[in-house]
């Protein structure tokens, strides 16, 4: 199992980050978790955005579906909505190609990760 994340804004706009279940994150019998934050140990480590918390959010792969969890981050996790961005509280389902924002940084799950 592999997945790629594309950074869609900020100084790293256009950068592609790739992860595999074997080497990255935490894999249990039921799910694969990737942590997102400014902390060096974060699986998806985003240092160039001061609006990102040390432990900001988590991606879950469970039952063939991605979901996004906000870890009580200071500046919030958002899903791109119609007019306004929608703040994530708790966990929400994530569709491939859906844009989501961690602090000020927009990210996208690549369709064919």
């Amino acid at each position: 199992m592999n997945v790629s994340l594309m950074i869609m804004s900020g100084v790293d706009d256009g950068l592609l980050l790739s992860y595999s279940a074997q080497d990255d994150g935490r894999l249990t019998h039921s799910e694969w978790i990737l942590t997102i934050g400014r902390r060096d140990e974060s699986d998806v480590c985003l240092r160039n955005d001061t609006f990102i918390s040390r432990d900001h959010a988590r991606l879950h792969w469970r039952d063939d579906q991605w979901s996004l969890e906000d870890c009580d981050s200071k500046n919030g996790t958002y899903i791109e909505g119609g007019d306004d961005d929608v703040r994530v509280s708790g966990t929400v389902m994530l569709e491939p190609e859906q844009l989501f924002r961690i602090g000020r940084t927009w990210l996208r799950l690549q369709p064919h990760g």
């Binding site: 804004s9 900020g10 100084v11 240092r47 955005d49 001061t50 000020r104």
Partner: peptide
């Protein structure tokens, strides 16, 4: 609006 203003500190 989509990108938002940056923070106070320059990181690079």
């Amino acid at each position: 609006r989509k990108s938002g203003k940056g923070g106070k500190h320059r990181l690079w």
